[in-house]
Design a protein around this nucleic acid. Structure first.
Lengths: 158, 158
DNA sequence: TTATACTCTACTGAGTCGATAGGAATGGAG
DNA sequence: CTCCATTCCTATCGACTCAGTAGAGTATAA
């Protein structure tokens, strides 16, 4: 699995929107400015996220973008898949499972890749935008405790 | 992290050499044939592996390739890094650690990526070619037990 | 000396990636 | 109704990577 600049920009933009979730619409220009993302490039990324129903938009003078669901319900794994494809290091989970069965001499190799993709999925599919925002704060505030908070609905510190 | 066809071919060729480890030299032609890899393409891959000191070669009539170290001492993680670069989903471990510290608004995001790369490394750096050969056999022979056998050098569980 | 095998360099055609340009559609403000 | 800020769409660009090929060069055993 590889995360491109596009994918990184998308995540940064979504984190921005997550932080502004209760504040209504946010304009592309503002996101691009504060996150140092080329504005025209971000345009295309947001359209992709809109088609994937992650964000919604309104046009015209008072337009802008907002998250379509609360930040606790948008998983990093989904975003990565939309922008950069499957989490697996080679092909996708279905193809890997297939090759485990059909390539007699190398079943174990693809099975190993499947383990890697499952390990990545275990992390990214259990981390929501809200979790990342929380983690940003934690890292910023000294980050002594190498705590692993899990779950889309995580709330409590400690 | 992304494993290219090149990386996959390399691993298949190395597994081939691991199985023939006690049998002396193996010719490119033979590997290419039995593993269905374009011969000229495999040529270049093996030179890369030779420069990385994973395999050694001898020229001339009775030439060929062999592993430079026993299959228990060659880790899949090393091979992937040689052919396809760092295991991290973005940049490498050093860059990620640096950005955790220097991007105040998104430290948590890069910290998350670091978790993913560590999860991948925990698997691939504890699996040797010998482990993969063993796993191939296991998968081939029914593969009921979803056992995780670890490498001769393995130390910590994930 | 010759056949066989590895070595090296260069190249190609297709595709991806980050980024930009220019305009069309939309909707609020005056 | 007209302006204008904003999202939306398409097209293009240059640089780069990737899978694969071509061909000449070098070492070695028989």
């Amino acid at each position: 699995m590889k995360v491109s600049h596009r994918g990184l920009y998308a995540l940064k933009a979504l984190i921005h929107l997550a932080e502004a979730y209760d504040g209504g619409l946010v304009k592309i220009h503002q996101i691009a400015d504060e996150e140092s993302i080329p504005e025209k490039f971000l345009e295309g990324i947001l359209v992709t996220l809109k088609n994937a129903r992650i964000v919604s938009s309104e046009r015209g003078r008072e337009g802008g973008y907002r998250l379509r669901r609360p930040p606790t319900e948008i998983l990093v794994g989904d975003v990565v898949r939309i922008l950069d494809g499957p989490l697996a290091p080679f092909g996708d989970a279905v193809e890997l499972a297939h090759r485990v069965r059909t390539e007699p001499r190398h079943g174990g190799l693809f099975d190993l890749f499947l383990d890697v993709r499952n390990a990545a999925a275990a992390i990214l599919d259990h981390t929501s935008l809200a979790d990342v925002v929380e983690r940003n704060r934690r890292v910023l505030a000294g980050r002594r405790g190498k705590n692993r908070r899990r779950g889309a609905t995580s709330r409590t510190p400690a």
